[in-house]
């Protein structure tokens, strides 16, 4: 009989305790976020270095970006609401809030796309000025990560639909969703401040 513990069997043998599996996923996510942080840190420091160049020309950024920031913030709030509702075992509310968070995420991406279109309509493209180049590259990189986070949110939403059947599993998934989603929201605030103010 195979008695070697793997993550699942270990979890199964200790009902009620936090599953090893979720521990590993959380660890994996935090390390992934460390990697992602280094990526954006590289872009930010490249931006700062380039900023001091003589040919820097600040381009006009569309107001749409503020709207998108608001949408992303609201989506984070919705995610928190979903989490709270779940802990209060109000699953219907939790499902709705998750839906709102997902919609917000999609809305953010759509809004970013609109913002890009607006800039191009105003004649501002990738090579137009270093500010524009960095803007497109940085927001593009961020958007790609949001796409990945949306996949994670969907996974969390699916868990919420059947949340009542396994609350600890749902809670662990929600923690991962919230960490990733709020992280990207915070990163957006930093990036937005950088490209608008500096």
């Amino acid at each position: 009989m195979n008695m070697v513990m793997d993550s699942r069997s270990l979890a199964a043998s200790q009902p009620g305790a936090v599953s090893l599996r979720e521990d590993q996923l959380r660890l994996g996510l935090w390390m992934f976020l460390a990697t992602v942080t280094m990526l954006f840190a590289a872009f930010v420091s490249a931006y700062i270095v380039r900023r001091s160049g003589t040919d820097w020309r600040q381009v006009q950024l569309p107001a749409m970006l503020w709207v998108n920031t608001l949408i992303l913030a609201v989506s984070s709030v919705a995610l928190e609401a979903a989490s709270r509702s779940g802990f209060r075992l109000r699953w219907r509310q939790a499902e709705l809030a998750m839906g709102a968070a997902l919609a917000g995420g999609l809305g953010f991406l759509a809004g970013q796309f609109v913002a890009w279109r607006e800039m191009m309509a105003a004649g501002i493209y990738l090579p137009t000025s270093p500010h524009a180049s960095f803007f497109f590259v940085i927001t593009g990189a961020h958007a790609l990560h949001v796409v990945a986070a949306l996949a994670v949110l969907t996974w969390g939403a699916v868990a919420t639909r059947s949340g009542a059947t396994d609350v600890p599993a749902w809670a662990a998934r929600m923690e991962l969703c919230r960490t990733f989603w709020h992280y990207l929201g915070a990163v957006w605030l930093v990036l937005f401040a950088l490209v608008s103010l500096y």
Partner: peptide, 24 residues
Amino acid sequence: LLAFPPLTAGAVMLLFDRHFGTSF
């Protein structure tokens, strides 16, 4: 994990300089 991302960033910028007219 910590060291590769700046190269990723650089590689993206180099790709853009090569094909999309940027001046990183």
